[in-house]
């Protein structure tokens, strides 16, 4: 397969996943800011949304301060934000168009249809209700895209590159939430868990669509270390770092087997997964949650670089 085709497939998946993630962040933020101040404290949730989306710097190049209007505009529609939802959908569609032949017609239909539908929203947040409708639409698009990939793509290298992109993006997103919110998840004795944090914790879980899963897995009320466990180490949770790495290893191995050659990507992915499966939450807290996350993000980026050098250039 052409390296450029593999690269495009990888990025189509990343962009759609990122659009989905941004939509969830915005939805959660809207929820939190709708609560009375007494429940969430006086932190600026919009600022936090920008940080979780990973675009604080570019945001502040355009706006002095984060508020509802500016953040909604910037994260959802701004042409100046390379990672706005609108740009993600456009970029996904551009990448898809460049590899029309490697995508199934069902997948093309979803992404091209989304790109055509995007105009309906006039590139402006509109009322809260309209905006919520938009966010739902983004999530549905990503579900349909993902679903048509699962249902229609041949299990060949094209599929594996596509899935590598999705899982790389997912791991990065989950890590970014942890990086912004880690202080809320520190163990009990260093932090008092009051109603204030309860809504923040629920928000974290919602942003990885895992609030219901949490209750099924732990059968407990929300506890910060269990939330951290769910997001980092629990392989049952599809957006946990552990689960993403299960998949990354699986697809890297599939490529290595098909091509008859192992490389840095395979070694790197396996190294990170081994680390995740041998760690326990207590150890992570002991050596510092924040340090762990920072290190993970840099490892994850290194894997991205390795995949790119090995296959995509």
């Amino acid at each position: 397969m052409l390296s450029r085709t593999a690269d495009n497939l990888y990025w189509v998946a990343r962009y759609v996943e990122r659009a989905d993630y941004l939509a969830r962040i915005l939805e959660v933020t809207l929820r939190l800011t709708a609560l009375p101040l007494a429940y969430v404290g006086s932190t600026n949730e919009w600022e936090s949304a920008v940080a979780t989306a990973g675009c604080s710097r570019s945001f502040h190049a355009h706006y002095p301060e984060a508020g509802e209007d500016s953040v909604k505009e910037f994260l959802a529609f701004s042409p100046d934000n390379p990672c706005s939802i609108r740009n993600c959908i456009e970029l996904a569609r551009t990448n898809a168009r460049a590899v029309r032949t490697a995508l199934t017609s069902e997948m093309w239909d979803v992404i091209n249809g989304a790109w055509l539908d995007l105009k309906r929203f006039n590139n402006a947040p509109g009322s809260r209700e309209e905006f919520m409708h938009f966010l739902r639409w983004v999530q549905e698009t990503s579900l349909r895209f993902d679903g048509s990939a699962s249902r229609t793509m041949l299990r060949t290298d094209a599929y594996w590159f596509f899935r590598l992109g999705l899982n790389m993006e997912r791991a990065d997103n989950t890590a970014r939430i942890l990086d912004t919110k880690y202080h809320l998840l520190l163990p009990e004795d260093t932090h008092v868990g009051g109603p204030l944090d309860y809504y923040q914790w629920a928000a974290i879980l919602r942003s990885v669509s895992a609030l219901t899963s949490y209750h099924w897995v732990y059968r407990e009320s929300l506890k910060p270390w269990l939330i951290a466990d769910l997001l980092i180490l629990n392989p049952k949770m599809p957006r946990s770092l552990a689960s993403c790495y299960e998949n990354l290893v699986r697809y890297c191995d599939a490529l290595a087997e098909a091509y008859g050659r192992q490389g840095t990507s395979q070694r790197k992915a396996r190294g990170i997964r081994t680390r995740l499966s041998n760690l326990r939450m207590e150890e992570i807290f002991q050596s510092g949650l924040h340090e762990f996350i920072s290190e993970f993000i840099s490892d994850n980026n290194e894997l991205g670089g390795a995949i790119s050098r090995q296959y995509l250039m």
């Binding site: 397969m1 052409l2 390296s3 450029r4 085709t5 593999a6 032949t101 290298d157 590159f161 490529l255 091509y259 050659r261 296959y311 995509l312 250039m313």
Partner: peptide
């Protein structure tokens, strides 16, 4: 057949190749 762009092809030793994942 593969749909290539200029940047997907290279010429080495007088022979044309395409850059693939393999």
């Amino acid at each position: 057949i593969e749909l290539v762009e200029g940047r997907d092809l290279l010429v080495k030793g007088g022979v044309v190749y395409m850059r693939t994942t393999e």
